[in-house]
Computed example of a mutant assay.
Amino acid sequence: MYRPKTTLEQWRILQAVVDCGGYAHAAAKLNKSQSSLNHAVAKLQSQLGVQLLEVRGRKAYLTEAGEVMLRRSRHLTQNVQDLEVLADSINQDWEPQITLALDLAYPRKLIYPVLRAFYPESRGSRLNILDTVLTGTEEAITQGWADLVIGGTVPRGFLGEPIAEIKFVAVCHPDHPLSAMSSPLDANELLQHLQIVIKDTGQSPDEKQGWLRAEARWTVSQFHMAIDLLLQGLGFCWLPEHEVAHLVDAGRLNRLNIKGSSFRKHINWLVHPRPDAMGPGSKLLSELILSHRQLNHYPPLEIKVGET
Rank of each mutant, 00 (worst) to 15 (best):
K259Q: 13
L14S: 05
I163T: 11
Q78W: 10
S73A: 08
E215N: 05
S73T: 02
H272L: 13
V169D: 00
I90Q: 14
N268H: 13
G160D: 06
N31S: 07
D228F: 05
A277F: 11
H297T: 06
L270T: 04
Y61L: 09
D175R: 13
H25C: 09
N38P: 03
V133H: 07
P280A: 10
I90W: 15
I258F: 03
A170W: 04
A105S: 12
E95C: 01
L62T: 03
T137D: 06
F168Y: 10
Y298R: 02
I267N: 07
A101Y: 02
Q45K: 02
L247A: 03
L104C: 10
L190N: 01
L62D: 06
S261F: 12
V149N: 04
Y2I: 05
P120H: 00
S182N: 15
R255V: 03
V114I: 01
K29N: 02
L115K: 04
D19S: 14
Y112D: 12
P177H: 11
L104P: 00
R74T: 10
L270P: 03
Q10N: 07
S204N: 09
L70W: 00
A216C: 11
C172Q: 08
N268M: 14
V55H: 14
T132R: 07
L178M: 05
T219W: 00
L301P: 02
S182W: 15
I258T: 05
W218I: 01
T77S: 05
S291L: 00
D206W: 13
A42Q: 14
S179I: 05
S261K: 15
Y2K: 03
L104H: 06
R217Y: 08
R156V: 08
S36D: 12
A214E: 03
I13G: 03
R217S: 10
E67D: 13
L48A: 10
S35R: 05
R274E: 14
G136H: 01
R116W: 12
S35P: 01
E302S: 08
L191W: 08
W145M: 02
I198K: 01
M225C: 05
E139M: 01
L37H: 03
L159R: 09
I150N: 09
